[in-house]
Design a binder for these strands. Structure first.
Lengths: 168, 168
DNA sequence: TGAAACTATTTTAGACTTGAAGTAATGCCG
DNA sequence: CGGCATTACTTCAAGTCTAAAATAGTTTCA
């Protein structure tokens, strides 16, 4: 969690219009700075509320969201891919969720290397409760932006992500 | 690092146009999902390159960036505010940077509670080298977006951040 | 068949992060 | 002066995360 690089340009207010002769070499840096700051602010606030209201962490919530969406049992490897985190990370998260009785681990008979994970009844109930609150929080946090702005931002972010992913 | 919530809507391709009667209750969720995925992808890649090329972590780089920008010695508390992280976090980061000989800690005579930090000569030299590479990487990662797109995205992100910060 | 390659997961070491509690110096004010 | 709140920083416990090594099961193919 970081990224306050900004090796030079100040926060210029206004619509940052110029678009002058040679493009500002620090413009992408400012873009990244804002992307990071925004993402971080949202993540931090959601994290705080989840902790305060449900004694839950964001990573665990995200893992449960994948399980809820999947409907069926999912392997650890698949979870790792969907959450975009390492295998070892998923192992630990699942361990803790199992301790809390929110998910279940089952070894597959078909391939004894792999195990699947699914929500318990308790886990599913809790998740639905949290998900509803979570959806409301997200909508609230972005509520200064109107529909078209949110749409435009969403589209640009999709393009940005594609740009990044293509170069990783 | 997470957030793969997405409790329902698939990744609709195209420009997500509809804009129908009652606004999709999951639209903000999709926006947040994309924001997070993009930020995370960039952060991960910058982190990897920084580690590979300079044996440096992003948090330490960010801290050094603040010191470079500040020009003068900065107190730990000020660093904490600028990096938007807790005090305890800064203490540890500075400890490790001091071990590496990249920054210096000085107790202030005026107020013996507080200490200031500044880059060493080595630290400053290394930072400038890293910052140049870093700027290039960021520009590269976003290079699929043209100037106006980057500008538009940057502006929307500023609005989004303001929206979030106003509600935290 | 059996060795080598591959796949799925766990383990480990190291770093980062937070929130809460602890320590120490300073400032306020009766 | 002297107690008390405040401020600055450190310490601590718990959780998250990664990269790399280890473990174990499966597949391939000579």
């Amino acid at each position: 969690m970081d990224q306050i690089v900004d090796t030079s340009p100040g926060e210029r207010r206004g619509d940052d219009p110029p678009g002058e002769a040679h493009p500002d070499a620090t413009a992408p840096l400012r873009l990244w700075l804002r992307l990071f700051a925004t993402s971080n602010a949202v993540e931090g606030e959601l994290s705080r509320r989840l902790r305060a209201e449900f004694a839950m962490t964001l990573p665990r919530f995200d893992l449960m969201a994948q399980l809820d969406k999947a409907d069926n049992a999912v392997t650890l490897g698949e979870l790792s891919r969907r959450l975009m985190v390492t295998n070892g990370n998923v192992t630990g998260l699942v361990d803790r969720l199992v301790e809390d009785g929110l998910v279940e681990r089952k070894v597959r008979r078909a391939d004894r290397r792999s195990a699947t994970v699914c929500l318990t009844a308790d886990g599913r109930a809790l998740f639905h409760e949290m998900a509803e609150a979570h959806r409301g929080w997200v909508a609230e946090l972005f509520s200064s932006l109107d529909e078209p702005q949110q749409q435009a931002l969403s589209n640009l972010l999709r393009d940005a992500r594609d740009s990044v992913v293509a170069r990783v």
